[in-house]
Design a protein around this nucleic acid. Sequence first.
RNA 1: GCCCGGGUGGCGAAAUCGGCAGACGCAACGGACUUAAAAUCCGUUAUCCUCACGGGUGUGCGGGUUCAAGUCCCGCCCCGGGCACCA
Length: 831
Amino acid sequence: MITRATTGRTSTPSGASLPSMPERTYSHQEVEAKWSARWAADPTIFAAEPNSTKPKYYVLEMLPYPSGTLHIGHIRNYTIGDALARFKWMRGFNVLHPMGWDAFGLPAENAAIKNNRHPHEWTNYNIAEMKRQHRRMGFSYDWSREVSTCEPEYYKWNQWFFTRMWDKGLVYRKQALLNWCSECATVLANEQVVNGCCWRHETIPVEQKELTQWFIKITAYADELLNEIGNLEGGWPDRVLAMQRNWIGRSEGAEVDFTVAGSGEKIRVFTTRVDTIFGATCVILAPEHDLVKKYVSGDKAAAVKAMIDARATQGLGEVEKVGIDTGLRAINPFSGEPVPVWVGNFVLSGYGTGAIMAVPAHDERDFEFCSKYEIPIVPVVRPAEGELTLPFTEYGISQNSGPWSGLATAQARAQMAAHAKANGFGETAVTFRIKDWGISRQRYWGTPIPMIHCATCGVVPVPDKDLPVILPKDAQLTGKGESPLARTPDFVNVDCPRCGEPARRETDTMDTFVDSSWYFYRYCDNHNDDAPFSSEAIKYWFPIDQYIGGVEHAILHLIYSRFWTKMMRDLGLISNDEPAARLFTQGMVIKDGSKMSKNKGNVISADTMMDEFGADTGRLFELFAAPPERDLDWTDAGAEGAARFLGRVFRFVTRNIDRLNEIGEPGEADRKVLRKLHQTTKKITEDFESRWHFNTSIAAFMELVNEIYTHEAALAPATRREVLEKLVLLLAPFAPYICEEMWEEMGRTGPVFKQPWPTFDEALMQEDGADVVLQVNGKVRSRLLAPFGTSKAELEKLALADPKMQLMIGTATIVKVVVVPDKLVNVVVKG
RNA sequence: GCCCGGGUGGCGAAAUCGGCAGACGCAACGGACUUAAAAUCCGUUAUCCUCACGGGUGUGCGGGUUCAAGUCCCGCCCCGGGCACCA
């Protein structure tokens, strides 16, 4: 087991030789294996207390995708959460600290095809492997609450929510243009389109294909999702909130109808600058616009199709503007003038109405387009002061705008929108950038969408009594064509729940972001067969007190989760408006200058790290090397430093355990060490409660240990006892294994992370006096030790009497003396 | 282009409210211990001038406010990330 050091002698800084004491060297392999096994054997050790009178604390790390093995990048997230959970236990909270698996998804399906193994088997193998690594790292999860999203007990409730949303009109089906790879013969998610090509066929451009898809109406909550961002300020990083605001993209303006000359059909455009409508010299349609399909044919239709495909391919960045004149003319409802109707590649079908009025004099894009195609440019706004240079996009004074000429444009804007409404050709309108959430996936490894298509009854949801719709085990996976479930007759063929006639099941599965939108609610009541969870359990635990994860989820997962919470609230299941009161996004772990990846060959697996350094060392180093929100450079040399430090603590503790009952009176050394001990306790406590700068907590702890080493020989037994105990307690959230071991070595019982957190005594922290800096013209020239609270006048006198100061001041004239009590004296001189 | 971060020794970083720049650690060097090495313990380490005492300079760049600026203000540069033809 623990090996005795070969030499019991210890040298000390003062050179004084201590009596020979037993000192241990630390073996992380043995100690970590021992405690890991003990913790695994006690299923309640990390469990929350039922019916607790303590305040609750729900700390959550984002659940991982079970891809295989953990590396040292993954463990940063868990290490931060684990330190917090353990700290909160010590502070007397009833802590909920669960973990689970985001277990559905395409990688499992692809791996299954490649290795000829079932995705479920592949996934469960990975879960077992990652769980083993979590346990080896010593993370304090309550595994009795584990959730795996690919199990029917979980995805049943995805289906249940889906049918609830259908009932409320929050789920609908519509045709939409989707990314299509002809080689795979399948739809691709946006994430699977790389530089306009399929991720698996990097030379095959993605086409746009129209398919019928299921959508969740997240836009019904767009306003609330945006407005309540304000309630998250302070608890969520500003960066994340800014990204969400940007993503939701609310824009106020007006919609106005132009009438197609001849047919009388309306083209509705969205504009934020209706005040410039007299300058609209053409109408431009998105290539996907319905009117284009209806009226554009022949060569021009082919050109439009090419435009659509080109846009999918080019995708990123600014592309040269291209237009096609449809030959149609549309009447401007304000001026009555006809303008040409064009199709433009820069007009987005998914934003606003998919059609714009081009005002080249007052919009840079319209200016560029109209200049290119020699469409007239008519200024209708002049600046309040100065020359007009085109395009002029600021507000100003309206001109050439009929009755509105001469008005400030802001005024004209409001009046003209009202005019459009009064005359029935428009209204004020709000447009969002966020779109409804398309959740259909033509994949196997996901939650079956619980809908039935009946020739007579139309779309019928699967009744609750028939849920879950089980994902069949025997589907044939090819990675090609439509959903594998469509070729599984036993699954597809079903009787209509309404009329009983033969019908057909929906064969698409749900986006896996559905699974992760509410998993943290399921942790609170994960064995419930009758409901997704009990409302009482949620009432007790929610909102999540601290959510921790990567910033890459700032938009997708975190917006979906906020939506899902509001949706469940409106179903009457819960009463909280937001899932998490606080969010923390940790930085990445960098190795050799870049993020770890298989391609770069710079991945260090968690197992390799633990073999070499130990879990505690890895945790301590990752917390020490940078503040948690910043990126962190992993270096083996740095990790060795962390290991060295833990050894230093361990040796001190073990060689002093037998010295606690000696006789001795406290003296100067004790005072110094206790002062540092209490200062450090305060510092670490405050870092946990406010800043989360664990790097400075650990630095302070190292300073404390240095101070202890300096004075070790002279310490009285009472001091030694206090120091030993508090050292172990203060270090416990950061390095749980070694602290548990030392606690036991000290003859103490109970898990160390359930002991009360050490308190500090302000009186003991007091320095002997104020170290007052003496400056001449802002430069430090001397210093003095003065009793705290020494008066300004007295400090000034002392400073001027200081020989060094007198030398520096010399014959110069004293202009001014600034005194900051207990801090500094600055003598300002001239000449 | 817009929105966030960030720029401090050889390296990771600290300075929490405008008050000693570089805590703590890594690396390097020196010493103690050892037959030796490792481990451990102690020490030195921003830079320039000076034998030394001591002094000058220094937080991306240029200005400013102040007795005092890494920190506040104005104008820039560079790096990283996000969004990006959003009408």
